[in-house]
Design a protein around this nucleic acid. Sequence first.
DNA 1: CACAACTTTTGAATCGTTTCATTGGTACGA
DNA 2: TCGTACCAATGAAACGATTCAAAAGTTGTG
Lengths: 340, 340
Amino acid sequence: MNRTASIKDVAIHASVAVGTVSNVLNYPDRVSERTKERVLRAIDELGFVRNDAARQLRVGHSRTIGLIVLDVGNPFFTSVVRAAEDAAALQGSAVLLGDSGHNASREANYIDLFQEQRVQGLLISPVGDIADRLDLLRERGVPTVLVDRLADEAKFSSVAVDDDAGGYLAARHLLDTGRRRLAFVGGPTSIRQVADRLQGARRAVEEEPDAALEVLDAEGQTVLAGRSVGDMLVKRGRAELPDGIFCANDLLALGVMQSLTMTHTFRIPEDVALIGYDDIDFAVSAVVPLSSIRQPTELLGRTAIELLSEEVESQNPVHRSVVFTPELVVRQSTATPAAG
Amino acid sequence: MNRTASIKDVAIHASVAVGTVSNVLNYPDRVSERTKERVLRAIDELGFVRNDAARQLRVGHSRTIGLIVLDVGNPFFTSVVRAAEDAAALQGSAVLLGDSGHNASREANYIDLFQEQRVQGLLISPVGDIADRLDLLRERGVPTVLVDRLADEAKFSSVAVDDDAGGYLAARHLLDTGRRRLAFVGGPTSIRQVADRLQGARRAVEEEPDAALEVLDAEGQTVLAGRSVGDMLVKRGRAELPDGIFCANDLLALGVMQSLTMTHTFRIPEDVALIGYDDIDFAVSAVVPLSSIRQPTELLGRTAIELLSEEVESQNPVHRSVVFTPELVVRQSTATPAAG
DNA sequence: CACAACTTTTGAATCGTTTCATTGGTACGA
DNA sequence: TCGTACCAATGAAACGATTCAAAAGTTGTG
């Protein structure tokens, strides 16, 4: 056999009309048991597989949703993708995944590709500022939901996590367990997330008159960057050491932890409490299990799909911005020191 | 405007025939400068985007390649995916990514979906034994390349990494740096990769008459599993400790390292050398930078696409199995101890 | 100016579905 | 027997691109 079987071949094989085969596929109730059975057998015998391009051409839209993320390797996005796929599957759609890798031209390629595919809609975590491109999508009538980025509600729906609240949560937790000399370790504050988390931490510290917050810059968001911050702290005298450290992400925190525990000068959490952000898999299996702030990634993915469905269904869409609050995960690295 | 513009609308707008518009899109050389310009302007003014479903229906196949991996969160696959996407983009194809999550029914869903999409071919890292399903694909004429799994060359092409060679490489390295009492830490040997790596290690050890290899079971492939193996080793006397440990993956190795360094009973690499497998990002930023075996993931992804292209191009395909050899990455955890 | 050779443009046919107005059957009551 | 419902099955039209044989236009030569 050369060509794959078409619905017409099936119709002939089962001695029915093409419309009947289509009904078996799409509206089984409209077809009598006898013919349904005959058609199904023919489908089986010929190995017929529906040609989705033809279907899509006829009905005018696909059953796929485009999802463009900044980095599939990032556990945050991986988790969002999973959730989005599952949520989409429930409503009979499939997700086409694109990885822009923080690269505007790759992103543009995916946007074009997905438009040609006539996706039902687009979920995107955009690279930098692509307001123009997104406006174009809007004009073309491609429903779009921004992920992990707040949107002008007049234009788009969006889902995001409140980083300010996360920062507050982390600092508040350190304060609640009795720490007063806090330090914030973060990458460049030009990154919105870092700036927001710092702002939230400041807000918490200002609630306690006797508390102070010191800001320590790190060169990047990596374990190694965290370790050099830690080395710097170790060199300070014990008196000048903060008693609570909040890192803008878990990698930094793990680096700081390595540095402090390796030298055995200070103990975590007795001398210094340490909390990170993101709750990556490694947090729980660190030398001292790391407290962290968990972002509701599954919820993010699921909600993104829901918002998109809303946009697809309604003709004159009302846009919504949903902001989730992250969650505190307490582990040993911030355990309350010997009560007092 | 309601409906998106079709090629017909463009033709009318530019006062040419539909065939001419199609030529502008696909064979620009066949069209005179003047009309080309006119058509392009019309495309721009109407915001025309080619409907890929119609195109695909006519030409009979899509420009997409299906890729189904076991776990997008696994850095190994993430890297393969990246490379495959890039390689596909170079030849004008796009990759549809599916994550089976080690789940046979999700895998089946993706296979069905991709068949309906009439992908050019399929790259798959299959869950368990799905020989039947794959045979079906073969009958249907869907070119398929197995990834990270050896295939019966009569049936499929495949790309894989030689785990036996990797195991040999790791053990040989420990031997070459003077270690003689080796230990292998692995999850269940029912996992093919683990069994192969162990086999390779055995092969190396047998080359040295005075060397011995001890096999230590771990409950899983995680940091925590590694740590409990490490704890067990610490409890042994120094005399009974191996002087070289090879872990079947980096997570296990990191766990062992945590356990050994935390107690400060033994030093790495002076008392014990430690090597992992996979060379994950964390290996380089471990407390003691971890030696490891790196798999050529980019090469794997690129080659998979190439093999698929071969299958697509030739009508009576000759299948090929390509096996890559992994690479030794030496870091501090296996540094040669004070010469002697 | 006629003719050949070549380039450019045309538009009907085609791909494989879904849709829907129409036809054919069957059952029931009058 | 006829009329009325109702259910199943039919098959032509439509979706929007590409293809390709044919028509139209252009240029060059004698």
